[in-house]
Nucleic acid binder design. Structure first.
Lengths: 130, 130, 130, 130
DNA sequence: GTGGTCTAGACCACC
DNA sequence: GTGGTCTAGACCACA
């Protein structure tokens, strides 16, 4: 699984790494129980400092997406994530407001939302690089 | 319109102000052409530094949500916002992934999205008392 | 409030800082809403790297003991901590077992426990350095 | 006696093994003179590296909880443990502080402490059936 | 001036 | 070899 990082972006690198991994898990490229690259390996692969990768892993662990196995390595957690519907709704409200003010209709909005969710299922079902 | 700021939040204050105003415009509490409070007034009301309010207004102007009135005030813009569908989709994808991993089904996801959008429509329809 | 750190200890420095601050809050030397020293100030005062202090503060924030105020500084949180009775009980069981095997009777054990809890009240009531 | 290990826990595996064995001795599941499983057997049973089990046994020996039997095995020691009241008090103070900040009253605290100790006494008193 | 982020390089505990 | 911890020094976003 390759990682696309934008070093010029305003969102911090560790956050980008988290996001990419969460997306990877959600769309099936990373399966529960699968071993993640070691922080050092990912560090050299991405050209990012070890500490930064470490912070990303730490955050993912804390949010329940991955689990550190003391016998070595880090694996994709099999338990569910911990995002609350309320937090999600709050974030969606902001995007919905921006969408509405940009002239996007309710139907178009829902279409976008469906695409965002289903896009992963589609990817997960084509097992070209799994 | 009162402003609810969370000084302990991870999102910067100026961003919170932007978000609240955008939400206010989207759900009809603020109408096109309506005059916004002066920077100083808002600063006093919220207990926030003038520079911070200024930055928020600057950002909103830049994004096209508000415009400087020639008489010195600031008013809600009547033109459309400028969010691209691509950027929106990218942000939605992250939330959709988190939702999916939290065990939220596709239907529940769309329900949430609809709620986020329609909450405003509903409010927007009762703009007769403004 | 002075900080006593043992650089030779097995428990990491950031954890020692957390512990000392929690003790300080619990026994009243630090009051809710009181401003904590900046991470840099504490860093020079203790001779510890900024990142280490930062990690300690981060952990305390996460556990709900302190709150970062975006307007500058970090303050003692007024809300309650988040330790569960279960976790506490698990930790106590280990100590109770060790105590029992060291020949400490049930009465002596409870005496120790009471001392550990009430010692803070006693300190809090003598306002020599508050 | 089965061993419950949490490979995702922050406490190292060898420490978990120590703790479980100490608990087992304190609450009477393991009696003085009883033979412990061999390092290799325990390693197979728990799926843990032999070196790790070895380290745990080494530590327990050093703390006086178990002793090497001259015939090559390892047995539960009949002598007392070596925890000092001071060390214990220091550890209890931290937990008491956390408990207090979590809103646990002094009475509840002592109740918890009693529960942690008595849970073993109850079990320990039925050592007549060994 | 405050905390947030990142780097390069190092040592150690654990397995 | 793996993650955990620490350091010294730097830049930036925020207020």
């Amino acid at each position: 699984m390759l990682m696309q990082l934008d070093f010029a972006s305003a969102t911090p690198i560790y956050r980008q790494i988290c996001d990419q991994l969460i997306l990877g898990i959600a769309d099936g490229r990373l399966c529960a129980g699968e071993k993640l690259p070691t922080i050092r390996a990912l560090a050299v692969e991405t050209g990012v400092n070890v500490m930064t990768i470490n912070k990303a892993y730490q955050l993912l662990k804390q949010e329940g997406y991955i689990t550190a196995d003391r016998r070595g390595g880090t694996v994709v957690s099999s338990s569910k994530g911990s995002v609350s519907s309320e937090k999600l709704l709050g974030e969606l409200r902001l995007r919905a407001a921006a969408a509405k003010l940009a002239g996007i209709s309710g139907d178009n909005w829902l279409e976008l939302c469906g695409l965002a969710y289903d896009g992963m299922i589609a990817k997960g079902s084509k097992d070209d690089d799994v």
